[in-house]
Amino acid sequence: MTPFSYHRPEAIDEALALAGPDSRFIAGGTNLLDLMKENLLHPRRLIDINRLPLREITPTPEGGLLIGALVGNAELAWDPRIEARYPLVAKAILAGASPQLRNMASTGGNLLQRTRCYYFYDAQTPCNKREPGSGCPARDGLNRMHAILGASDACVAVHPSDLCVALAALGAQVHTQGPQGKRRIDFADFHRLPDDEPWRDNNLDERELVTAVELPPQGYAGHCAYLKLRDRASYAFALVSVAAALDLDGERIRGARIALGGVAHKPWRLVEAEQLLCGRRAEPAAFAEAAERLLQSAQPLAGNAFKIELARRAIVRALGEAAGGTPR
């Protein structure tokens, strides 16, 4: 860990004033300290935002919920409003990390997790995400965990979050505040594909702070499922995960939401695939079509072709579970 100065502001403006090119905000610290200890990040200034007033979950005028950026992952998953109205969010959170980490990690921080790519995580190897221009050994190396969608020559890493997959599916919004003021970013526009700037995971500006995540009114509470496939039963990152949600009118699908984790540099969602389901009967043939469409542009790497078939089956399974009623 490189030496840094430590600051603990009490107000958002104070925090923003401290932010700069070599600074980082720290909340739970579960990923940032991990990266700093691995010698992958070297902030010279840490701004501890835990005393900022961002711990509330409040109803929005539209009928959704506004989740303060400092709300802990476990706290969020176990909030009665989340459990009742947004079980998809709760299920996604509880599928990730460990109880200890979920007690520490914040909502805002969860959005900013870095990839688990082996090469990104080993300071002794090249990685375009870590050292722009150094190359991507994963593209032709160990890439079983890596992207099948939206990857670039520069980077084939995937986003590791589970919560984000649910938020993408629900169409959440990210509230931020920076020197230029406040803004709301649609979840689909928050994370980026790697393109030729893989070191940029998201569209936040350097000094911008995530202040909240807003959930829209529709939570698909009755018909949703989060299915995570991984190499052990718990405490492992996803090979493929699916957040699936259906709005049913009897057996007919009125609306559908599907997002995939573990397959791309961001949670993968395709509105066209969801629209394919609208008006259809909730049955495997329809789900398979949606899966086909969602994976249409999938490109396997040498080690991860299985993910395409796995994702296809997982989508069908998750939609089937959702159609049968949210599993308790």
Binding site: Y6, I26, G28, G29, T30, L33, D34, K37, E38, L46, A74, S98, P99, Q100, L101, N103, M104
Partner: peptide
Amino acid sequence: DHGQCGACTVLVDGRRINSCLSL
């Protein structure tokens, strides 16, 4: 030392956390 094993678990205000990932 990276939040991947739980050996460092302690209780902070009654809640379990990984003490290796907290300053």
